[in-house]
Write a protein that binds this DNA or RNA. Structure first.
Length: 953
RNA sequence: GCCGGAGUGGCGGAAUUGGCAGACGCGCUGGACUCAAAAUCCAGUGACCGCAAGGUCGUGGAGGUUCAAGUCCUCUCUCCGGUACCA
């Protein structure tokens, strides 16, 4: 049936000739049939639309290859299309048009990423509903895109704001919500398959649900937001500048709010590993790997003793220099490890390393467990849960004010470059498990609560940051790694007296790997050997274990906005109207959850999301006698763009997000082109969703985008980034009006390599416009009174010479399209045109092939010329000109002759001349003979087809 | 700092496995057409020396490998993008 529909589409396309020949008349009636883009382009765009020329079949036609070429769909901003958009769009369009001519089934859709802040801000200001503003912008974008002649199947157009689209975005969210990650199997599984531990089961249904909720890929947490009391709304990070609101410069405070998170970190390993299978540039892969930031090391527990709030403070020293604290038996707070430490160690030796740290230890993560002997202090993040209990009475006020200051700082303030390290001593100590040394514990904001365990052992001799901190606060620095070259004997010998050695000041920080010193039994080991050995030793004593960490954080997936997808979730309320903490997913059959009607879009002045002011009948549904409150957060803009490539394949499906048969036939995306600004987040989020869907059997491929290309940025004529403030923005509409879409397309492809950043040049546009005019005159007599072919167009087969030029062009253009080297493809077509502009005869069938080559690049003028050459149908499905290597081959070539590597003469020889022939010809050459005369020939290098080089003395 | 990418005429950019550096376009110069201009067509156009034939230099810089280097190796400078205390 699907095939039937496709065939029907095909026949419709092929039937239509009558109206076409009629519409030729306006051109022919013109006094002079000059190249006139203003009439040609709308004419063919209308033709393609009427005849559904580019409608894609439901499934690829049997026996043909499929091509799914996807553009990153635009956000329809109020400014309209930017010249950067058509760059990537033209590239994929060329590939698609060429592929159709090469017999591929092509999927080439377009849509709009239409949720977003600007429409909502506009709504707040004017009261106009974001939907109406968004639709107007989409209309502009659609018109502009259509004016450029892209061969999209517009029947598949979608916007992420379409209720029928976000119905399935919500459905996918529910799949994610319903999934937990099985670490053993490394895959997401339905929550009902989550094994429930017995002790949880015993506690009853509530405990089981809580346990499940803890394991879902979508979970709730408290996360800080930028609350602006003056504006009465929560701001996005980019709306906050220097701690003030971007609009109005009002103060912004960070406050915790209940948020939804997606557990993308569970997929970190797969997201990293599967990059290997993708045809993406190494640069982009590196960017993603970097972002994921996998590191391997060890978790180690440092004993700190039982919490004992009433125990008198012991470490009085604010700086470790004065740290000759009086020995006190028992706890680590005493001068030396006592009985309780020994008991703890014994217990660990027997019981092993616990999954979750107990209260008597500080667990740290390090990538350099080989430097454990060099740990001279520890640092915990200001948000670390142990801060309070580790702070001694005398340090209380200092620590408290330090931590408060840290919460006020934004992330940016805390990570400011080259800023001085700050921190404060807690007064407490931990015991280093490898040598029993007491190490002071500090609080400092250079340690992040969100990475690792939020606590570190500091090894100032071998870590730049620790080094800086230690210098700042006069903490000891002990070198435990020597440079690889010569582990000096003396150092090794002295290792026993490491403590004495500690006194000797180290003034340099050596972060590189090397050989262990001052490390007891480990002295002399290389960093790699040491790491391996200590990991095993720590594990066997129950003191540590190997661990992996990622820079990647879980994805903060909720926004306090109106204009986004509502979450299909309900919070159960008790009889008093208070949330019970239980969450219920909206039934699939009740999707979509549409946005409620609001009287206006003005902020309600509370940090809660705008949907909090929705009418009660939306906000408080009653199901089975239970009252619920809807989730009022909305999804971030990323959500809709995470899966649009799937919906394009089956946009009308009201039974499923996508039909599996369709998905199997078209996925993965074969070519995905877009700006590098999405190289990290969009692609990572999208790949993450795809992997969850893969695990849940919704899609059949582990990765969505096989080949990815990032187009380069287009700069203004002054070599600066285009921006309104710089006044160098080029409006595509104006270029189309003056030069036409074909010229715009051609110019953007001719500027340089697709991936390069390159400046705009109106003279360059004029240049390719001139080329299209020359092509036009190659075929059409533009001085005639009517639309007639140039007198030079003749009906005879091409000569060998003509074929040679033609087939060289076919070969080069075909190969260049395959490698996306459009700039060189165009230059080859220019050479063809230059060559035949000078010719007095141009065989028609040669011109036809040339027009077909040009068609993917400049489709409108190509269609018009194709018609002028006597064809009634569109050329969109004409077979691509076949390359015949034997016709392209030159009979005779020029071969340079060098003497001592310098060009001295050139030989014209048969192309297949062998080395002996070439050598003889070179020596026989008059000029060469003169230059060689009287000299001794040392060596002769002869490379057939390439060159002859004679080395003389 | 770290990770990517890139440096070639006046400008945008070409150059299989190392094999004639500067394809193609813009700009510029000269010529044809024109009363003139635009448009178009033809020719020239890396720098320097030379009347010419021809020669010397030349792909950010310095070394190196090679008969031969824009291309490979070492060091180095500059620009662009990403990232930023991730232990």
């Amino acid at each position: 049936m699907d095939r039937g529909r496709f065939i029907e589409a095909l026949s419709r396309r092929r039937l239509l000739l009558v109206p076409v020949s009629c519409s030729l008349s306006p051109v022919s009636s013109a006094a002079m049939p000059r190249y006139n883009h203003a009439t040609i382009e709308p004419k063919w765009q209308a033709y393609w639309e009427t005849h559904q020329t580019f409608a894609a079949p439901r499934l690829p036609s049997p026996g043909s290859k499929k091509l799914y070429a996807l553009d990153m769909f635009p956000y329809p901003s109020g400014d309209g299309l930017h010249v950067g958009h058509p760059e990537g769009y033209t590239a994929t369009d060329i590939v698609c048009r060429a592929a159709r001519m090469q017999g591929c089934s092509v999927m080439h859709p377009m849509g709009f990423d239409a949720f977003g802040l600007p429409a909502e801000e506009h709504a707040i200001k004017t009261g106009e509903h974001p939907r109406s503003r968004t639709e107007k912008n989409i209309d502009t974008f659609r018109r502009q895109l259509k004016s450029l002649g892209f061969s999209y199947d517009w029947n598949r157009e979608l916007a992420t704001t379409d209720v029928e689209y976000f119905r399935w975005t919500q459905w996918i969210f529910l799949q994610i919500y319903d999934t937990w990650f099985d670490g053993e199997a490394q895959r997401g599984r339905p929550i009902r398959e989550l094994p429930i531990p017995d002790d949880i089961r015993k506690q009853g249904e509530g405990a089981i649900r809580a346990y499940q909720d803890e394991h879902r890929l979508a979970y709730q947490t408290e996360a800080p937001v930028n609350w602006c009391p003056a504006l009465g709304t929560v701001l996005a990070n980019e709306e906050v500048v220097n701690g003030k609101s971007e609009r109005g410069s009002h103060p912004v405070v960070r406050m915790p709010l209940r948020q939804w998170m997606l557990r993308i970190t569970a997929y970190a390993d797969r997201l990293e590993k599967d990059l290997d299978s993708l045809d993406w540039s190494e640069g982009i892969k590196a960017l993603q790997r970097n972002w994921i930031g996998r590191s391997t090391g060890a978790e180690v527990d440092f004993y700190i003793g039982e919490p004992a709030p009433d125990e008198p403070a012991c470490g009085e020293a604010a700086s470790a220099a004065a740290e000759a604290a009086s020995p006190r038996a028992g706890s680590p707070q005493a001068g030396s490890p006592g009985p309780s430490y020994a008991a703890w160690k014994k217990a660990r030796d027997k019981g092993g390393f616990p999954r979750k740290p107990e209260d008597d230890v500080l667990r740290i993560y390090t990538t350099r467990p080989d430097t454990l002997f060099g740990a001279t202090y520890m640092v915990i993040a200001p948000e670390h849960p142990f801060v309070e209990r580790l702070t001694t009475a005398s340090q209380q006020s200092a620590v408290k004010s330090y931590c408060e200051a840290a919460t006020r700082k934004s992330d940016l303030d805390r990570t400011e470059l080259a800023k001085e390290k700050t921190g404060v001593f807690t007064g407490s100590y931990a015991i280093n498990p490898v040598n029993g040394e007491r190490v002071p514990i500090w609080v400092a904001d250079y340690v992040l609560i969100s990475y690792g365990t939020g606590a570190i052992m500091a090894v100032p001799a071998h870590d730049e940051r620790d080094f800086e901190f230690a210098q700042q606060f006069g903490l000891p620095i002990i070198q435990v790694v020597a440079k690889t070259s010569a582990p000096d004997k003396a150092a090794l010998g002295e290792a026993a007296s490491a403590a004495a050695e500690a006194a000797s000041p180290v003034i340099e920080c050596l972060a590189a790997e090397g050989v262990a010193i001052h490390s007891g039994p480990y002295n002399g080991l290389s960093t790699a050997q040491f790491k391996k050995k200590i990991a095993a030793d720590l594990a066997s004593q129950g003191l540590g274990r190997e661990a992996v960490n990622y820079k990647l954080r879980d994805w903060l997936f909720s926004r306090q906005r109106f204009w986004g997808e509502p979450f299909p979730l309900l919070h159960e309320l008790d009889s008093a109207g208070k949330p019970t903490g239980l969450v219920r997913a909206v039934d699939e059959k009740n999707l979509p959850v549409d946005l409620p009607h609001l009287e206006d879009f003005k902020p309600h002045g509370r940090p809660e999301p705008p949907l909090d002011k929705a009418p009660d009948d939306w906000l408080y549904p009653v199901i089975d006698g239970n009252r619920y409150k809807r989730e009022t957060n909305t999804m971030p803009q990323w959500a809709g763009s995470c899966w649009y490539y799937l919906r394009f394949l089956d946009p009308q499906n009201d039974k499923a997000a996508i039909d599996l048969e369709v998905e199997k036939a078209w996925m993965p995306v074969d070519l995905y082109v877009g700006g590098a600004e999405h190289a990290v987040l969009h692609l990572l989020y999208s790949r993450f969703w795809h992997k969850v869907l893969y695990d849940r059997g919704v899609v059949s491929t582990p990765e969505p985008f096989r080949k990815l290309v990032n187009q380069g940025m287009i700069l203004g004529e002054n070599n600066e980034k285009m921006s309104k403030s710089r006044g160098n923005v080029i409006n595509p509409d104006e270029v189309v009006a003056e030069y036409g879409a074909d010229s715009l397309r051609l110019y953007e492809m001719f500027m340089g390599p697709l991936e390069a950043t390159k400046p705009w040049s109106m003279q360059g546009v004029n240049g390719v416009f001139g080329f299209l005019n020359r092509v036009w005159r190659l075929v059409v007599d533009d001085r005639a009174e009517a639309m007639v072919l140039s007198a030079a167009v003749v009906d005879r087969p091409p000569t060998a010479e003509e074929n040679r030029v033609l087939h060289q062009t076919i070969g080069a253009v075909t190969a260049d399209i395959a490698t996306l080297s459009f700039n060189t493809a165009i230059s080859r077509m220019m050479e063809f045109t230059n060559h035949f502009t000078a010719a007095s005869e141009r065989p028609r069938q040669m011109l036809e092939k040339f027009v077909l080559l040009l068609a993917p690049f400049a489709p409108h003028v190509a269609e018009e010329l194709w018609q002028a050459l006597g064809h009634a149908e569109t050329l969109a499905y004409e077979p691509w000109p076949a390359f015949d290597e034997s016709l392209a081959r030159e009979d005779s070539i020029e071969v340079p002759v060098q003497i001592n590597g310098k060009l001295r003469s050139k030989l014209t020889v048969p192309a297949e001349a062998d080395a002996a022939t070439l050598e003889a010809a070179a020596l026989a050459d008059q000029r060469i003979a003169e230059l060689v005369a009287g000299k001794q020939i040392v060596k002769k290098i002869v490379v057939p087809r390439k060159l002859v080089n004679i080395v003389v003395k």
